[in-house]
């Protein structure tokens, strides 16, 4: 894929919608196109966060090793979403294992490359942080909702139910 094409297709990803062309070009220079087969392991807990992904199609599952409870699948990330932000925050290590549940098409972004760009170009860095904060806020909100266990059998129905 030509760099020009890559910039264009990156532009279509919801995470980058309405991004300034100049900034998008900066990002493109750190991006590549990847296809991951079903079952592929994208990264693992404790490993260095070298790459993050903008998912185009397919679904990635995040799992955590919960000791005696075994491997727990806590979330899936799908088309249009961002996979991974540990690259952004020191010590840049993944907190989860990530597997492709089905074949995944994604943009892989070189995190070291992007961090350097962010450091040298603060305007670009701010734009990245702004977009990531939004994603983080939404994720946090979703996690809270998940924590509420709204469908759980808080079965206190008593006599009337």
């Amino acid at each position: 894929m030509q760099l020009q094409d890559l910039t264009e297709s990156l532009h279509k990803h919801p995470f980058l919608s309405n991004m300034d062309d100049e900034l998008l070009k900066t990002l493109t220079s750190c991006a590549s196109n990847v296809v991951l087969p079903e079952g592929a392991r994208l990264f693992g807990e404790g490993e260095d966060a070298k790459t993050f992904y903008l998912i185009r199609s397919g679904r990635v599952a995040l799992e955590i090793q919960a000791g005696e409870r075994g491997q727990i699948r806590i979330q899936t990330v799908g088309p249009g979403e961002v996979l991974g932000w540990s690259w952004l925050i020191s010590p840049y290590r993944w907190h989860f294992d990530a597997y492709a549940v089905e074949q995944v098409h994604a943009f892989a972004i070189d995190a070291t490359c992007l961090r350097t760009k962010c450091e040298t170009d603060h305007h670009f860095g701010y734009e990245m942080l702004r977009r990531f904060s939004e994603v983080l806020e939404r994720r946090l909100e979703a996690t809270r909702l998940q924590l509420l266990d709204v469908y759980g059998s808080a079965a206190t129905g008593g006599e009337n139910y």
Partner: peptide, 9 residues
């Protein structure tokens, strides 16, 4: 308290 009670509380 029971007046507004549903299955969840």
């Amino acid at each position: 308290m029971d007046f507004s009670k549903v299955a969840g509380g």
